[in-house]
Every structure is written in structure tokens, then in C-alpha cells.
Design a protein around this nucleic acid. Sequence first.
DNA 1: GTCTATAGGTTGATAGAC
DNA 2: GTCTATCAACCTATAGAC
Lengths: 202, 202
Amino acid sequence: MIERSETKVSILNAAEMLFGRKGFDATSLRDITAEAQVNLAAVNYHFQSKDSLIDAVIQRRIEPLNDRRLAMLDEAGAHPTIEQIVHAFAAPVVEADLSPIVPLMGRILSTPDQFVSRVFKKHLNIVAQRFTEAMAKAVPDLSPAERMWRFHFMAGAMAHVLSWSHLLGELTGGVCDASDRKAITSRLVKFVAAGFRAPEGN
Amino acid sequence: MIERSETKVSILNAAEMLFGRKGFDATSLRDITAEAQVNLAAVNYHFQSKDSLIDAVIQRRIEPLNDRRLAMLDEAGAHPTIEQIVHAFAAPVVEADLSPIVPLMGRILSTPDQFVSRVFKKHLNIVAQRFTEAMAKAVPDLSPAERMWRFHFMAGAMAHVLSWSHLLGELTGGVCDASDRKAITSRLVKFVAAGFRAPEGN
DNA sequence: GTCTATAGGTTGATAGAC
DNA sequence: GTCTATCAACCTATAGAC
């Protein structure tokens, strides 16, 4: 059933780390096999191609992640506040136990072109729909278009701190401490929720 | 026969378009010379390397952009509101006349690792400092760390809509119209300003 | 399943004719 | 300044020995 070889997992681990750190295009299969300490041909044996490997790397993480998001949204009840909604969306990523997935997810969110078809339409449609519905109840005064835009503002703010998390400390002279994940979620939730509560105006 | 600057400008134009659309790693010099309808060797003649070309592409756009940002910040007076500050930061990019720079800037902001040294420390330090100072006056109740985090939330929200602008229409079934740039700025400013005004709390 | 070896293609960069 | 031709290095992917 779940017969996963040691080699296969090593490749996935090395790949997600390097993809997150250097990007998908800039990471070669040789980089991955060197990091994983396996043979080059093992990649094409276990996965068929680099493209399929990318899919496998993403899929391994994004499914439990989205399950967790939906579970947290359910736990918030039938009428969650906007704070609870944003928290359910962000916390599973920002506070993820497995640190390599943080830069990986930031990378995916930041380079939509290659992944919008293979990732978003496949794994994120249900999530987006459920969260959009919840937001429609939590901030009913906003027009659907405005809610959609703000949803993307939220996703962007989150993606940015994911992508930059390992640089923010150095870049801000130690002012931003990216190690306390729960604190980041808390700051993000406050900021985004206030943004969602802003009157739409014209 | 053609003036000697025409080739160079053609290369820069083609490069910024392709870099923005496909990313820096995924764009080859052959892609660029084909698009610019110039010879392959012209790239290495006018610019020394692909790396230097990337620098030139970025530098050509980022300097007038940052000048415009600082000018708008000055125009807002000695004590600008947070709305004015956010507008001065975002409008010059989001409403840029030259459309190729929109995805280009989104790409730069989304892939910090390769550019944090060559771009941010070189061109963005002064901008970040001036805007941080203005924010300290506009929202003085926030701790410096909180202001810094919210600055990055703002940058992320902006970068995201820049990167996704050409996809948002299709992805949202036409709900999000990315063609009206001023409307995007307006939405972004309202959202971010409300986020900045949120009490810090603990 | 794991390896070596290599095919077959693309890349960035250069040399040298004109 | 512009071109053709080419290099060495790298890439993904595969074939075949063990």
C-alpha cells in the first residue's frame, strides 16, 4: 500500500528544500540528487520527469495543508468572524511544523504562471470557494468584486512574508523576527482583518 | 542602417517583457534576441553578460520609479496620512504607463533571493527609509517592529496583484477587472491603510 | 532497484570575418 | 557594430549492465 522507498522520500525532501530556496527553474535534478545523496537516475526512475517531480513535491504538502484549512474553518462554526477566517487560511501555512514548506508555498504563490493550471485549479478551487463563501457572510456589505480583491491582498501579504521569512531578519537589522511563527500569524490576522473591515466607499 | 542605440533598447524592451512574463531563469538570451529581432551576439556586445543585462533591465525602470515615489511622498507634505503614504508607494508601480514593468516588478518582489543584494540594497534602501520615517509619524502608536511587518504586508499585497494582474480576470471568472489600474490602487490603499490603523494589541 | 554511461538538446559566451 | 559559427558546460532523460 504505502510502500515508500527511502530514496523516494529523500528526493522529495531535497527537492522541496531546493525548490523553495532557489526556485523551480534554477534547481537542477543534479542539485537535488546531490543534496539527497542518491543517484541521478533515481529521479527518473521514481518520478518520470522533473515536471512530475514538481507535481509530487507540491501535492505531498498542499493536500494536508488544505485539509487543515478547511477543518479550522469548520471549527470556527457556521458564522466565523473575519479574524477566524483569515486565521484558518494563514495559520496552517505560516505555522507549519515542517519548515521547508514555508518557502516552497511562498514560491508557488509568487510564480502563478507555471502553477495556476496544475496547482490552483486542481487543489485550491475548493478552498477558495469555501473561504469566499465564509467571507461573504462575515463581511456582507462588501461587493463580490471587492471581497475578491481583498482575498488576493490577503494572499499576497501572506505569500510575501513566506517568501521573505528567511531574509527579513537580516534585511531589517533584526527588527523583524521571523522565528516566532505564531506572532507572525497574529500580526497578519490583525492587519488583514482590519483591511477587510474597511468600508468599501467609492 | 540603424542608429546604434536602437538595438540596445530593443534588447532591453524584449528582455523586460520576457523576464516579467516567464521569469529570469526561464528566459534565455535566445528568447530575447528572437523577440527583439536582433542577433544573439548583440547581447554580449552591448551588455557583457546575462547577469549584467538583468541589472540593466531593472535599473532602467527602478530609478525613475523610486524618484516618482519620493516625489509623491514630498508632495503629500510634512505630515502625510497613511493613505497618502501607501498611495505614494503603490501608485507609481500599479498605474505605470509602461505595462511591461508591472509583471517585472512583481517578479522582482516575489523572488528576493537573487535580487535582494543587487536591487534592494542598491535602490530600495533610501526609499524604504523615507517611507518608514513617514509611517512612524503617521501611525506613531505602533512599535517599530509592527510598522516594519505591516510595511511588508503592504509590499506583499501590492506585489501579488502585480504578479497576478494578467491572470486575475480569468481566474475569478471576470469578477476582478485588472485593466482599471487606478481602481486597483484605490482598493489597495483603502485595504492597507485600514490594516495600518488597526490597534497593535497583544 | 541501483548504478554507469551517454544520448540529445539547450544554455551563456566568444572568436573572427565583414 | 553586426554577423556566422562554434565552444564548453550544463541540462533532462534514457538505455543497459549488474
